[in-house]
Computed example of a mutant assay.
Amino acid sequence: MSDIFSLEHADEKLKALDAFIIEQDAKEESLIAILHKAQDLFGYLPSELQLYVSRKLDIPAAKVYGVVSFYSYFTQSKRGKHTISVCMGTACFVKGIEKVMHEFSEQLNIKSGENSADGLFTLKDVRCIGACGLAPVVMIDDKVFGHVKPGDVSNIIAEYRAQEGSET
C-alpha cells in the first residue's frame, strides 16, 4: 500500500462523506462536523481531501486548511492504528513523564508526531489529558494508563502488539 493519498479507490468512503454533507442543513456552518466525519472515514485529512471538501461546500480551500491546522484533533498525516498520547502537563512533568516519553520514543524508534515502522503506533505529546491524580499519564486511543514508569513501556507496547496478533 502506498503512502501517497489518492481519492481514487476511495469511492465508498467518498459516497459516505457526500451523504453526510447532504444531511447538513447549513453546509459552511457544518464544516467542523464534516471534517470530523471525513477524518473518521479516511483516518486523516490530507490536502487532496481538504480540497474535495472545499469544492463540495463551495468555500475557499484556505478556510478548510485554516480549520484543519487550527484544531489539534485534526491530522493531516496518516496515523498509526493506535495513538499514544503522552501527557506533558505540569503534574505529569513533575512526576517524570519525560523519561516515559523517551522510553516510548526509543522502543518504537520514533519521535513525537511520527508513526512506527509497522504502522501500529503514532506517538504524540499532549498538553494535558486531565487525569492529574494519576500522573504521570499516557493514553492510548481511549484507554488511560496512570502512574506510568519507564519500565512499564515495554509491557504496554507488547499488550497492543499481542492484540494485533490475535486479530489476524
Rank of each mutant, 00 (worst) to 15 (best):
S69W: 12
S69F: 12
F70K: 13
Y71P: 01
S72G: 14
S72P: 10
S72K: 14
Y73T: 13
Y73D: 10
F74A: 04
T75S: 12
Q76M: 09
S77K: 12
S77L: 03
K78L: 07
K78M: 09
K78W: 04
R79A: 05
G80W: 00
K81H: 08
K81F: 06
H82S: 09
S85C: 08
V86F: 06
V86W: 09
G89W: 06
T90N: 09
A91S: 12
A91H: 12
C92N: 02
F93Q: 09
F93E: 15
V94K: 00
V94C: 07
V94Q: 07
G96F: 01
I97H: 01
I97M: 02
E98C: 04
E98F: 13
K99E: 15
V100R: 03
M101F: 15
M101I: 14
F104S: 01
F104Q: 00
E106W: 10
E106K: 12
Q107I: 12
Q107T: 02
N109F: 08
I110G: 03
I110V: 14
K111D: 15
K111V: 14
S112V: 06
G113S: 11
G113L: 02
E114N: 07
E114I: 02
S116L: 05
S116E: 07
A117K: 14
D118K: 02
D118M: 01
D118S: 04
G119Y: 09
L120R: 09
L120D: 08
L120Y: 13
T122R: 00
L123R: 00
D125H: 04
D125G: 05
V126E: 09
R127I: 14
R127W: 04
R127C: 03
C128F: 07
I129G: 12
I129T: 11
I129H: 08
G130K: 11
G130A: 02
A131T: 11
C132I: 05
G133R: 00
G133D: 11
A135W: 02
P136Q: 01
P136I: 00
V137F: 01
V137L: 02
M139E: 12
I140W: 11
D141R: 09
D141N: 14
D142R: 11
K143T: 15
K143P: 08
K143W: 11
K143S: 10
V144E: 08
V144D: 03
G146R: 01
G146W: 03
G146E: 07
H147Y: 12
H147T: 02
K149R: 13
P150S: 11
G151N: 13
G151L: 06
D152Q: 06
D152H: 15
D152N: 15
D152T: 01
S154P: 15
N155Q: 15
N155F: 15
N155S: 15
I156P: 05
I157A: 03
I157S: 06
I157N: 07
I157Y: 06
A158S: 11
A158Q: 10
